[in-house]
Design a protein around this nucleic acid. Structure first.
Lengths: 329, 329
DNA sequence: ATGAAAGCGCTAACAC
DNA sequence: GTGTTAGCGCTTTCAT
């Protein structure tokens, strides 16, 4: 593979000039430009990003840290991240932790080691101490989940209010026995959504029952199936369920159908996220719609701004309750 | 950020020695090792991948080219790629073309420019000429789709046989009016699956009817909805549908339900891929299961072998027909 | 076991 | 408008 020196020699100019035509930095006479372009063509030269990156001490790579992308919620966000990044000359390094601590350490080190210029974390279980340490020296943005105790900029929605709205919707429909499938409450958004759930019940003087609250270890379909299975074994069964993720809600819906119960008559179901599949279930799923694409897009914008040294501020985005067949006939 | 020289100075050794302790290449006396480690600790030194990459002329990055990851089929494959890559010291650069030619060019150039050491392409619409050119100089593996005319190693399944098996399953159930939702037939696997569809029909002397073949421009849910809508407008409606992607099949299933038809009694549906959703639909979807994770894993293994200069051979993987409620009561 | 020094490929400051 | 040169941070001969 030819390098810039060989191109320079072939074109009868210096490597600096070749660099200049490559990057359009300062003016180059059209005659030399043509000579250089011809040499590039003949040698099939392609500039090495390795040399350029070292010289510029940047990688133009953005690390995206996620727990898993088996959840379409994240892939939608990534779409937004990718679009903004590509349009601004960055590429994304996709890093899936799978809740594996050593993998996570590897990934965080990649930004320490300059392999990435910054990071967007969407990994709610990330090691907070390490993250804080990293954030002192490197641009980091949190997307979709964040931490009250930290100053790392984030983009998120008002989880408490969104959950409140979802549960209130069920109450307005006449439900009083409303179960809640939550995620691990070590995670902030799980605590926030629980608060919203409780606030709605309290407001209408509906007692909160522990037996109707399920804390799931994961967000897969089968976790939702399991949760619903447990609710349906109860002496006093709920008539509605609110799940903090569409994947959980879809699992719960599936299990409800499986048991021959009618949704929404016997059991109303509300999800969270509005993944595209939520509109393909039978019945279709009522859910809190998050602006995933825009969240990703904005997070990328914030990160790149931050890399460029500009100050960035956290953003709270809008959500929307999308009412479909799983709650309304 | 400290560099290797500063560490060397602080430890009272040369940078070569620091490099040695960093990489465990040649023996270093335990006393100097300790001195160096102490210096690293004190300076909070993290070696720059930028310098290392240039020196080693490798990036340890694998480019993964896909059309879109809104299809869970691809995310499953990526899981496999990622697991093998990480375990072998590589990371993946996720590149989504969105059928955008200029984006695709950008991505292909990234491997030309050494930003990635190799590439796994899962983009069936890739520019073949450019791809061939690139493959002459750089390690490339095709995953899930490939091109008969090329020598680029691939991992795939026997699409023709798989489609044949799916359609035969419908015929055995007594169906004779079997519609086919295919993808764009410029893509090899679409042509192969069509062959399988036709072979099954021919074998049972069932005439092939153009009105029952739909060539979709995309693989999204709504494309499947649209296809089914068209079939249901026909004078002579099919009683079964085979779609080349679960996403299409799920859309078709949705539309069938929507019209009040019973699946599988009025309309049997078979998909392709076995994405996790396919087991969450109502009714659950009969589908051709591809070993997505293993395909990705194998493709990564082949690519890394290829990067290391080892010869690699194409692999044909097993598939399986998973029978569920959308064809059998 | 350790150090000196070259060099991976590029860009930018400086000189002309 | 163009060339010279230094240097980004690292690894690896080659000496010793």
């Amino acid at each position: 593979m030819a390098n810039i020196q060989e191109v320079a020699r072939k074109a009868g100019v210096s490597s600096a000039t070749v660099s200049r035509v490559l990057n359009n930095t300062t003016a180059v006479s059209s005659t030399t430009r043509i000579k250089v372009e011809k040499a590039i063509e003949e040698l099939k030269y392609a500039p090495s990003m390795l040399g350029r990156n070292l010289r510029n001490s940047e990688s133009r790579l953005l690390l995206v840290l996620i727990h898993t992308f088996s959840n379409p919620y994240y892939t939608e966000i990534i779409n937004g991240i990718e679009d903004y990044s590509i349009a601004n000359g960055y590429n994304i390094l996709l890093c899936e932790t799978d809740s594996n601590a050593s993998r996570e350490t590897t990934f965080l080190n990649m930004v320490k080691n300059k392999l990435a210029d910054g990071m967007i974390s969407m990994n709610p279980t990330v090691d907070l101490e390490k993250l804080t340490g990293l954030a002192e020296k490197h641009p980091i943005i949190l997307c979709s989940d964040y931490y009250e105790t930290m100053e790392i900029p984030y983009v998120a929605i008002d989880n408490e209010a969104a959950a409140y709205k979802a549960v209130k919707h069920l109450i307005k429909l006449g439900h009083e026995k409303i179960a809640f499938i939550n995620f691990d409450e070590r995670i902030l958004y799980a605590r926030q959504r629980r608060k919203g759930y409780e606030r709605a019940l309290n407001e209408f003087n509906i007692p909160i029952q522990d037996q109707w609250i399920y804390n799931s270890q994961g967000l897969e379909f089968h976790n939702g199936v399991q949760a619903m299975r447990k609710f349906l074994q109860l002496e006093e069964k709920p008539t509605a369920v609110f799940a903090v993720s569409d994947t959980l809600a879809i699992g719960a819906l599936k299990e409800t159908n499986e048991r021959g119960l009618n949704v929404p008559d016997d059991m109303a179901v509300v999800g969270f996220d509005n993944i595209s599949f939520s509109n393909m279930t039978n019945p279709t799923l009522t859910t809190v719609s998050q602006p995933m694409y825009n969240m990703g897009y904005k997070a990328a914008e914030m990160l790149i701004d931050s890399i460029k040294g500009q100050p960035v501020e956290s953003v709270i985005m809008d959500y929307e309750l999308v009412m479909r067949e799983s709650t309304i006939n």
